[in-house]
Design a protein around this nucleic acid. Structure first.
Length: 289
DNA sequence: CACTTGACCTGTCCGC
DNA sequence: TGCGGACAGGTCAAGT
């Protein structure tokens, strides 16, 4: 799914909907998605109040009053959808919804709150996961130790951005942008969009780029992600926010999934190629190797 | 280490 | 209409 702007959109939506609520029940499928022991779930999740919702890179953290947290990665097709059964607010809402009646075939975890509201974790491809762990242990887990800085932090500079890439000298710039240990939160959509904005070909090697190039990429990454958060993220097929609704960034995309259409800057037909094993979209005139 | 490729899953779309 | 193959927002564990 879900790159930084989509996960941030879910975080903001959920924060307004479930902070302060108390979990009264939980069900999940046993094979995948929520591997915690039933005794831990009973002890640290049931009866817990939601105290905060945080995001780091593409990971969501739902903090509980028991000093435990739910740590969630949506991967490609994960959804966290809230539903208030009294008003039918949330899932199944007719406007811009990609979610029908829940739970459905893709539902892996369901939480019920004491007021009757529900939170569903759906994941069509089952790559995503949710786990319950002590809040204090989160900074120690491998992913948190290795993940790079948040690109939208106010004090994150263009110079600091460029320095993160020195390790990846022989990588194509797109592969390095997708590496979460370099900079956090960038995925396939916003890598393509930012490189188009910076007029840099995704196959350009890191070592062949100048500080000026990195400054441009830095500006574009920040601009495109900020706009995407404003638009509620990108919905190609399965991504929805906490209310089950789509994001509209794809209406503003300049190259991503626009192969065969005109480059909005020069009119040349946008092409699709493969870089770092991922579908990649470029303007062959604006972005030259 | 740095770098590349395949694996993990289900669903959809495209060509025959 | 059916069937095979490629592809899809992301990491990982292997391989070189």
């Amino acid at each position: 799914m879900p790159e930084l702007p989509e996960v941030e959109t879910v975080r903001r939506g959920l924060a307004g909907l479930i902070i302060g609520k108390t979990v009264s029940a939980e069900t999940h499928d046993t094979e995948k998605g929520f591997p915690n022991a039933p005794s831990d779930v009973k002890k640290f999740l049931i009866g817990a109040e939601i105290t905060d919702i945080r995001r780091r890179a593409k990971v969501l953290l739902i903090d509980l009053s028991t000093s435990y947290s739910l740590m969630i990665h949506l991967k490609m097709t994960g959804q966290l959808v809230y539903e208030d059964p009294q008003t039918r607010f949330g899932a199944g809402h007719p406007n811009d919804s990609l979610v029908g009646t829940l739970p459905d075939k893709s539902t892996r975890v369901s939480l019920t709150f004491t007021d009757g509201a529900k939170l569903y974790f759906n994941d069509q491809r089952k790559f995503g996961w949710m786990r319950l762990l002590p809040t204090i242990e989160i900074p120690n887990i491998n992913f948190m130790q290795k993940v790079g800085p948040e690109p939208l932090e106010a004090d994150f500079t263009a110079k600091a951005f460029a320095e993160r890439f020195t390790r990846r000298a022989k990588s194509p710039i797109k592969a390095a942008l997708l590496d979460q240990t370099v900079v956090a939160g960038i995925g396939n959509i916003y890598a393509d969009e930012a490189l188009w904005g910076a007029r840099i070909h995704p196959k350009m090697l890191v070592k062949d780029l100048t500080q000026a190039d990195f400054t441009n990429i830095y500006r574009e990454v920040r601009a495109v992600m900020t706009l995407a958060i404003e638009k509620g993220g990108s919905s190609n097929s399965t991504y929805v926010n906490a209310e089950g609704k789509k994001g509209s960034y794809m209406d503003f995309a300049r190259v991503f999934r626009r192969d065969g259409l005109a480059c909005p800057r020069c009119g040349t037909t946008i092409e699709k190629l493969r870089v770092a094993g991922r579908g990649t979209h470029i303007c062959p005139v604006c972005q030259v190797v």
